[in-house]
Nucleic acid binder design. Structure first.
Length: 419
RNA sequence: GUGGGUGUAGUUCAAAGGUAGAGCGCCAGAUUGUGGUUCUGGAUGUUGUGGGUUCGAGUCCCAUCAUCCACCCCA
């Protein structure tokens, strides 16, 4: 039996790679225009980072981490998300001592152990940004704008932006108590998961898909109704900024995020028709995470978008990625005798920056042309005895079906002009 | 972790318990050194794996693995 890829992983084959490069270019452009610099952190970290950073009660930490002992007996975890690592790097490299704010973006694979399905994989890629050192809602607005601009630049349509405030360490305990008081009489009717949530993190009951839980929670006090003055002002200012910059959003008071570190602003971007996993990006503010990881008391905010899901949406919406036709030459060889001169010509073209390949399967001339056509070469040069003698070569433009006899110098010139 | 669907050629899929097939793709040819269309020919399978029922199993049963989808959760 042939060896297959591990469950939940994907090979990105060359054909697919075009779309990835396209997305990556857009990331760089957006990062650049918003003043964010790329950062790359390790794909594995000390397990403790995620336990402290992402939160012990989150499902990610409880049951989805790839954790193992290394040979030095350290507990190591493949990163399940990017924020904790970026925060760690920000603290460890003392970037907090530089002029603020500090703004990073990153891209790379994340790992979560869960059953794969449409749009959910064990290794998946995220594009994310993090901004440290400012509590200003303008940063919240800018981060949300970047996220939306990423999708828009890709040509996606019909995204839904949901925003909410999940409060801070002042108002959250107030809401938690209010919520528990409200739920207490109906406790027995809650589903088993929500019974556990009741103590650990009652806020997440809002997220439950169970109809009875939804019914119970329908009129429960939302976090919004319990927000302190600071959080209320923050949310209001954010809304003003979003309105002012023409970003449409839905204020979703039930929006709760699965990672424990969020404070104040939380948001999520949804798109339909990619199956059950409709969330293609999300993020929020985390005002105590930096300190939690051992840094100074500094706030942060960021988002992460799932690139595989983004790609699925692009395919579902039939967004085309146009790339221009390449100029590349196939060198057709008539007989074995022209192999050496053909090879020399190929290398000479390559050294002049022209993509060139030659036949390496000893095929008939006809078969070589068929191959060149199938592989989309823009030009074919044929080399036979006559060409070697005269130093002039028939250069055929495959699209225009035109052929002319040229010297090598003329060939290079023509090809460079067309590129 | 729970539930459901599906495993047959490179690929998409047929074959109603009785000789494993088709489209696409791939390779070759249609007279001398030129592609896309057309025509002709060709190659390719331990029917995921292991058991069982049967005179006989791709087909029925059991197990196992893989994969897809959904729940959970999230990107």
């Amino acid at each position: 039996m042939a060896i297959t890829r591990p469950k939940g992983t994907n090979d990105i084959m060359p054909e697919e790679m075009k779309r990835w490069h396209y997305m990556e270019n857009i990331m760089r452009t957006i990062g650049q225009t918003y003043g964010y610099s790329e950062i790359r952190t390790p794909m594995f970290e000390h397990t403790e980072l995620f336990q402290r950073g992402v939160g012990e009660t989150s499902d990610i930490v409880e049951k989805e981490m790839y954790t193992f002992q290394d040979k030095g007996n350290r507990s190591i975890t493949l990163r399940p998300e990017g924020t904790a690592s970026v925060v760690r790097a920000f603290v460890e490299n003392r970037d907090y001592a530089e002029a603020q704010p500090t703004k990073y973006y990153y891209q790379g694979p994340m790992f979560r152990y869960s059953r794969p399905q449409a749009g959910r994989y064990r290794q998946f890629n995220q594009f994310g940004v993090e901004a440290f050192g400012s509590k200003d809602p303008a940063i919240d607005a800018e981060v949300i704008a970047m996220c939306m601009e990423f999708f828009e630049k890709l040509g996606l349509q019909r995204m839904e932006l949901h925003i909410n405030s999940v409060g801070c360490k002042v108002c959250r305990p107030v809401h938690k108590q209010a919520l528990k008081d409200y739920l207490a009489p109906s406790y027995e009717e809650l589903c088993d998961t929500c019974k556990n949530r009741y103590e650990a993190n009652p806020l997440r009951i809002f997220d439950c898909k169970s109809e009875t839980c939804q019914e119970i929670v329908k009129d429960a006090p939302t976090i919004t109704s319990c927000l302190c003055e600071e959080c209320t002002d923050h949310l209001n200012e954010l809304k003003i900024l979003l309105d002012a910059s023409g970003i449409e959003y839905i204020l979703n008071e039930n929006l709760v995020r699965g990672l424990d570190y969020y404070t104040k602003t939380a948001f999520e971007v949804m798109v339909s028709d990619i199956g059950a996993q409709s969330s293609i990006g999300g993020g929020g503010r985390y005002d105590s995470l930096v300190e939690e990881v051992g840094g100074p008391d500094m706030s942060g905010i960021g988002f992460a978008v799932g690139l595989e899901r983004t790609l699925l949406s692009m395919k579902a919406q039939e967004v085309s990625v146009l790339d221009k036709e390449p100029i590349n030459v196939f060198i057709a060889v008539i007989s074995d005798q022209e192999k050496v001169p053909a090879y020399q010509l190929m290398q000479q073209l390559r050294k002049n920056g022209i993509a060139a390949e030659m036949d390496v399967l000893g095929r008939s001339l006809k078969a070589q042309f068929k191959y060149a056509n199938k592989r989309g070469f823009s030009h074919v040069v044929t080399i036979g005895n006559e060409e070697v003698q005269n130093m002039r070569y028939p250069l055929k433009n495959m699209k225009k079906k035109e052929e002319s006899k040229v010297s090598i110098e003329e060939m290079i010139l023509t090809l460079k002009e067309e590129a």
